[in-house]
Write a protein that binds this DNA or RNA. Structure first.
Lengths: 70, 70
DNA sequence: ATCTTATGTAAAGCATACTTTCCATGGCGA
DNA sequence: TCGCCATGGAAAGTATGCTTTACATAAGAT
């Protein structure tokens, strides 16, 4: 599963450290998610979505959408 | 975290067994989710949402809890 | 060149998700 | 009653998420 964590974090101009603190996880957890070492729990996914004010589906890409109709 | 699994499954008139097979998990996993013994992984949450043709947010109800719900 | 800051990553340990196996209970049809 | 059938749930084992600790590296500033 892919995610847009690094992209979204950098858009906000914040450090892994700061995001980690906001989400109440360790910096290593953020790094691991950004680099795809593992997937978040659903609880953490909800926290991340809440932080970025987006839906889980907008941040975590379960399946590439091969269908490119508008 | 609460979820609408049992409700949605019964709406469709299917058994735990059948849902489990469709999602490629065990019947006990479905039962455990319906009865709140644990939360799904984000992968399973995506599979469930896909099965019911809904968003994760429509099926799983997350609310920030003062007591740091896990 | 040295120092600092942001990030990458690994190891060990604990918590949670999920499995298989097993048994219990309530509803229902014959 | 009797025998299924759908569900609940425990127990033990494996896989994965997350923590703390620790060290490495690259880039930028002084």
């Amino acid at each position: 599963m892919k995610n847009r964590l690094e992209e979204l974090r950098k858009e906000r101009g914040i450090k892994q450290d700061e995001l980690a603190e906001a989400l109440e996880v360790s910096r290593q957890t953020i790094g691991s998610l950004e680099n795809g070492r593992y997937n978040p729990s659903i609880i953490l996914a909800f926290k991340i979505a809440e932080f970025f004010n987006m839906s889980i589906e907008e941040i975590f890409i379960y399946r590439e959408n091969v269908n490119h109709e508008k």
